[in-house]
């Protein structure tokens, strides 16, 4: 029995720094796993639509024709389903969360136009791939003809 059992702890706390932070003046400490908002490395995105299909709150909209990827950050529930299922691994979960605002905001990302060097590199790669396929087809046709002849 007795009274004032909390005196020691109260005196200790009196001389320590406060346990709370003056957020938002002081930035909060996030861990590497903290779930904030979803970010997209748009130049790697192939607009397959898997993230749109799997999102439980329909926060993501993908348009393949326009090459745009739209997210409503206020609908996102940070379940990381989209990040886990992305085939190109271009989606990541960033730790800082959407700040409070007076209006809901929808973020649209559009795939940037290819620079002339990138376009030239892409065309060269496509040409090389087409040449490889043609060569493989020709080889197969030659093998079939040989087998038929025998």
């Amino acid at each position: 029995m007795g009274s004032f059992h909390l005196t020691k702890m109260s005196l200790r706390n009196f001389f320590k720094k406060p346990a709370t932070k003056m957020y938002p003046v002081v930035a909060p400490t996030y861990t590497k796993m903290s779930k904030g908002h979803v970010a997209n490395e748009i130049k790697d995105c192939i607009f397959c639509g898997i993230c749109e299909n799997r999102c439980p709150t329909h926060a993501i909209t993908v348009s393949k024709e326009d090459e745009t990827w739209t997210i409503d950050n206020f609908s996102c529930i940070q379940c990381i389903t989209c990040v886990r299922n992305c085939p190109k691994k271009c989606l990541t979960m960033e730790p800082d969360y959407t700040k409070a605002a007076a209006q809901k905001s929808i973020i649209t990302l559009k795939k940037p136009e290819l620079t002339p060097e990138e376009r030239a590199a892409k065309e060269a790669a496509d040409k090389e791939k087409a040449a490889r396929i043609a060569a493989a087809k020709a080889a197969k046709a030659a093998r079939d003809a040989e087998a038929a002849a025998q």
């Binding site: 029995m1 007795g2 009274s3 004032f4 059992h5 909390l6 020691k8 702890m9």
Partner: peptide, 17 residues
């Protein structure tokens, strides 16, 4: 250790009891 102090307050303090 700190939790022990809190629990002692809950279970032994006269005003809480």
């Amino acid at each position: 250790a700190e939790y022990g102090e809190l629990l002692r307050t809950f279970l032994k303090d006269r005003s809480v009891k």
